[in-house]
Design a protein around this nucleic acid. Sequence first.
RNA 1: GCCCCCAUCGUUCAGCGGCCUAGGACGCCUGCCUUUCACGCAGGUAACACGGGUUCAAAUCCCGUUGGGGGUGCCA
Length: 454
Amino acid sequence: MTVRVRFSPAPTGFLHVGSARSALFNWLYARKTSGTFILRIEDTDVDRSRPELIENIRDSLRWLGLDWDEEYRQSERFDHYLAVVEGFLERGQAYYCDCSQDQVRARVGENAGYDSHCRDRNVSKPADGDGRVVVRFRTPHEGVTGWDDLIRGRVEFENSVIEDFVIVRSNGVPMFHLANAYDDFDMGITHVIRGEDLVNTVPRVLLLLDALGAIEPPHYAHLPLIVNEQRKKLSKRRDDVSVSDYTDRGYLPEAMRNYLVTLGWGAKDDIEIRPIDEIIERFDLADINRAPAFFDIRKLDHFNGEYIRMLDLEAFIDESRPFAGPVDDKLYRRLAPFVQERVRRYDEIPALIAWVVGEPPEPDEKDWRKVMGRDDVPKVLDLVLERLVTVAWEPEALADTVLGAGEALGTKSQLPVRMAVTGRRSGLPLFEPMAELDRSIVLERIRKARGRLD
RNA sequence: GCCCCCAUCGUUCAGCGGCCUAGGACGCCUGCCUUUCACGCAGGUAACACGGGUUCAAAUCCCGUUGGGGGUGCCA
């Protein structure tokens, strides 16, 4: 039996990292088993779905390197779902219901579900455009519905807690459970891999699948949720975690993908950062964790830094150039080797090279005092200033001059000069970038700093 | 309220009855390297939620407690 899995996002927002991780695990499993990975857009909710977001989802998936083999949109398959409903209605597996939500609440209170009020009332088929009548699925009130989850083990629900749920809205549009069950059946899905937030929809789908005549439902594997610091499910509003945010900030897709894999799964040999082929080879659904995992940006940053440093210089230059800002290409090429070792994200680059490209930033007060507060700094700057006027303008000579001035005075000179020229106490190596600046500019910056000391 | 799930260092993963005086990674701290920072290297810090069982033996199995989370829509 060949594996068929699907990633089925609803296009109601940008693709976020939780969904991306679900997509990734589906993809990993498909690639590991030489199976088929399907992208199925679940856009049955015509009011909430934003067709333009489908492109964002596809782009994000492609960015992560998750290629799919087949693609479907549920909005194009409504006639299938509705035909199924006709059959249910004929066989008495579903029925029309004209209860308003207020009426139901009035009967059962706040905390109960639907009370099966219309089960045997024979509400007739609504006239076109009626807009009040829904179709509900007749669920058994006794027994249990359960499955052996590949990650969580046996999960069971008492049928008595499964209400007669809606399968067609009053506007005639089919609901998620129905479309989901039908498509999984129709598309021959063998494994359903998705977030834990969907576990309690499984019994309904299982019941539907049975009514559909499915002999064998797919295997289910519910992934632990990805959570924020408050240990709550990552949410679009609270946590701003769409994949596109990360592409914008200069994360490498390979780093993001690799990091996402470590949330809920780990290789037995303890190696976390490794090529995707090795991950595919070692990945297995049965080894996935059950506990929620915190999305730790600091660790993502570390992964990203590792991946940046793995790049060969040319690739680094090409990839990072768009993030570097207004800097001459040739100059950027010369700075790149120093930059590559120091950044964890591409969006850190402009700040790092700012003093070479344009004006140095205003120094931080505390750092300034710490570096420039020493009594010998004025003497050092004076001597450096004097010697810099005539020195050959190339890195080695600059280093000799600046460092030599310090030695001549029995002190350290690199930090004060760095602070004067770059406005920071840390950053790129000093002399190579400094040689890129005009002599007059460097002298001017040091004079200005010297002036502040009086 | 009701239903479902979860529980190893601050975080993340390893551990699936003895190899555990619990391991890797991130973070943090220390040292080395060094023109600063970073990189790299070498160390260090820090956890089996609690209580009962089962067993010769439990982080690993069972039950309970506590604590978290998810769901409870004519969203998915």
